[in-house]
Write a protein that binds this DNA or RNA. Structure first.
Lengths: 235, 235
DNA sequence: CGACTGTATTGGTCGGACCACCTCGCTGGT
DNA sequence: ACCAGCGAGGTGGTCCGACCAATACAGTCG
């Protein structure tokens, strides 16, 4: 009989190694920030080759679970929302057609709620930061700069809502490449002035600390783009 | 001067390979379902070793972008919401403490809206399926079976909302291991009857085709667990 | 005591070998 | 002419061993 459970033999050895390491973290045997054994030792422990172990480590690295530092070692990340949800941007980058509308719908739901929450609890400092990006956005004609401040504007508001997980998801849904692809066409139709008005409305609701007004303004803001994109596709 | 752009040399070769393949898909040079060249050919094309290429492929495989079939070849997935958001479950599995509350908050926001949407557009067939799981859930005492029908109950409703992306996200937020970890403690406190009442309320709202009632019922349902978990942590 | 250096450690890359599985064309019989 | 069975080639999966590159640390020198 087996001294060690070498066992089920399901799936590839690499896949099993991924599950084993994930399980170690889930069970608390590996803490955030902790350093793992070397690739060579890990491979020996699980009875697989270094090559297969490297594939497992690489997979967990792109998932934001592990972090490999050349010459130093392999570490568990802090496992914070930002670490794990970075891959969410991949979804936005590779989605096309109808799925882009669905993503915008998700963003509308989450961002409108986040903006409402922010209206109720935003601090003066955070509000000042929001205003900074609002004015900067209106003071330039460079589309690149406008986009950057646009992103920062919403990012500050979402951060003020106080839910890091939601913020990380919305960050992925507003990733640079995603916005650039959709915004390009949208803004070409002279939507700048409308965007400015909508941003102003969101800002007013924040100043007034009116959650419902903030929710409506944010929903309308995203909804505008959503509607435009829908007509672009459906016909 | 370079005949072929042999590149900036930023990051590891594997990381660059991942970006190259992702870019090929984003640019449409690789269609969903299409077969890629062999690992050996791909490695040669990008001028890297097969080992490094395999790590890149493995990474894209766990992200749900590629699919490797032993003996056959490597294929691009259908790139549907379910494929790409499967990794979302990892977040739920590895989150602990305050982040679990944040995840439940996100679920509350999305699921309440999804349930409201479902109330407006659910078909008789779908409603019958929902009822099937509702009665089955109430007809047994086996916690495992209850959990299974509970999941299916919500899954059917969310599917009726018509947004596959949202459904895929909620699937990750309700993954078996996540629910098992939280529900275990929650149900031990005799919350079965309360859960049954809440499910009944959601069902009534769907039958009445009342979106706002459905939203409220779903929000309360998730909110109950959220509140319970908050007290478990905060003290 | 501090800056420097050299050496051991560790992840990154490479090339080759062999195995397991699948595909598809060939073969032989009906 | 058709089809079941078989076999060779192709492809991903795994392993090994070697070397490179970045880091960490201890010992050394000013």
């Amino acid at each position: 009989m087996n001294v060690d459970e070498t066992a089920p033999q399901k799936g590839t050895v690499t896949q099993r190694a991924i599950e084993r390491i994930k399980a170690m973290i889930a069970e608390g045997r590996l803490e955030p920030g902790q350093r793992l054994p070397t690739e060579r030792d890990l491979a020996a422990q699980l009875g697989i080759s270094r090559s297969s172990m490297r594939e497992a480590i690489r997979a967990l690295t792109v998932l934001g679970v592990l972090e490999a530092r050349h010459g130093s070692g392999i570490y568990v990340t802090q496992l914070e929302a930002g670490d794990l949800l970075e891959t969410f941007g991949v979804v936005a980058d590779l989605s096309r057609g109808p799925r882009l509308v669905e993503l915008l719908e998700v963003r509308r739901i989450l961002e409108s709620t986040a903006t409402a929450m922010a209206a109720a609890r935003i601090t003066p400092d955070q509000l000042a930061e929001v205003e900074k990006h609002l004015t900067a956005m209106n003071a330039t004609d460079d589309p690149e700069e406008i986009l950057a401040h646009d992103l920062a504007f919403h990012r500050e508001i979402v951060a003020a809502a106080g839910n890091e997980t939601m913020a990380a998801i919305l960050e992925g849904l507003s990733s640079r490449t995603f916005r650039a692809r959709v915004w390009r066409g949208y803004q070409e139709e002279g939507a700048f002035t409308r965007t400015r008005r909508e941003h102003a409305a969101i800002h007013r609701a924040l100043v007034a600390r009116d959650p419902e007004a903030a929710r409506a303004a944010a929903a309308a803001h995203v909804g505008e783009v959503e509607e435009w994109l829908r007509t672009q596709l459906g016909g």
